[in-house]
């Protein structure tokens, strides 16, 4: 007799239990909504990268400040540019940048953390001092400093965010790797003669990567916030290129006469963060195997 655990939010079904991670997220109620939403957003961002209804960056002052209509779904901005095309075109920049920063932080953190946790000694001490130093600065402060000194710009923004973000992942990965030598499952593998590299690859790495992955997914919202916030202040994406935060910054001057300028990028940000949060919560629920 096979006793299966039923988890909250997971309907017990007669069909085969969902075993792959993706399928389990799909079975999770909020995870499914998040997955659908994020697939749509990624698709839109990909299309917006190659094609938009109008040129997103070309001003046409004759058409400035037109409210939403059949020809301009979300209206036009103060320079007569189509807001829908700009939102569409900015998607790959905003979402892509957040994804890039998180992926780099994740990889650096994973590598540094596991190395540090497994090697211990001087390497560990030095690495963790560096982590402490980065984490001694509140989030964004380091980014402000780096941008202030290197100057504004999209590339500098990415560098600044990666430099201030990786330490969180490194610390988590290290805390999971350190002392893993006495973990029962790893000890058993060691005693049965499995090689060190195999143990690291099969026992240690997947678990740590999953935990860091959940953390990165849940951090997507604050990363979008940082990127659009810094662009809002003019430190990130430079005009004429469209970015959701930068669009918000231009639009607030015209709120009285053109509220759609503010609302469209805000909703774009809301939807992308929401989809990441939904997936993140589902991932967390699904990967947290509760002890009996």
């Amino acid at each position: 007799m096979l006793l299966r655990l039923t988890r909250p939010n997971e309907q017990p079904t007669a069909s085969a239990p969902a075993r792959s991670l993706l399928r389990r997220v799909w079975r999770h109620k909020s995870g499914r909504i998040g997955l659908i939403l994020s697939i749509l957003l990624v698709l839109l961002a990909a299309i917006g990268y190659v094609w938009t209804p109008y040129d997103p960056d070309l001003p046409n002052f004759a058409l400035a400040m037109k409210p939403p209509s059949g020809t301009h779904l979300l209206g036009t901005d103060e320079m007569g540019r189509d807001v829908f095309s700009r939102i569409f075109n900015a998607a790959h920049r905003s979402i892509g940048a957040a994804f890039l920063v998180l992926a780099c932080s994740f990889l650096i953190g994973l590598f540094v953390g596991i190395l540090s946790g497994l090697m211990g000694g001087l390497v560990d001490t030095l690495m963790m001092r560096l982590v402490d130093i980065v984490m001694a600065l509140p989030s964004l402060v380091l980014a402000f400093a780096i941008l202030g000194i290197l100057g504004p710009g999209f590339k500098n923004l990415l560098v600044a965010l990666i430099l201030s973000d990786w330490a969180w992942y490194a610390r988590l990965a290290r805390s999971l790797a350190i002392g893993s030598g006495t973990r029962p499952d790893i000890l058993t593998a060691k005693m049965s003669g499995i090689s060190f590299s195999r143990i690291v690859l099969t026992h240690l790495l997947p678990g740590i990567a999953t935990k860091l992955g959940v953390m990165a997914t849940l951090a997507f919202g604050s990363m979008i916030g940082a990127i659009s916030g810094l662009s809002f202040l003019g430190l990130g994406v430079q005009p004429p290129h469209a970015e959701w935060g930068a669009m918000l910054s231009q639009s607030r001057l015209y709120f009285d006469i053109a509220p759609w300028l503010l609302l469209s990028p805000a909703i774009a940000i809301l939807l992308s963060v929401l989809s990441a949060n939904l997936i993140g919560h589902a991932l967390r629920d699904v990967t947290e195997v509760k002890k009996q």
Partner: peptide, 12 residues
Amino acid sequence: TAALPTFVFALL
């Protein structure tokens, strides 16, 4: 609030 960055929430 979780889905809106602080500054967007403040702006709205």
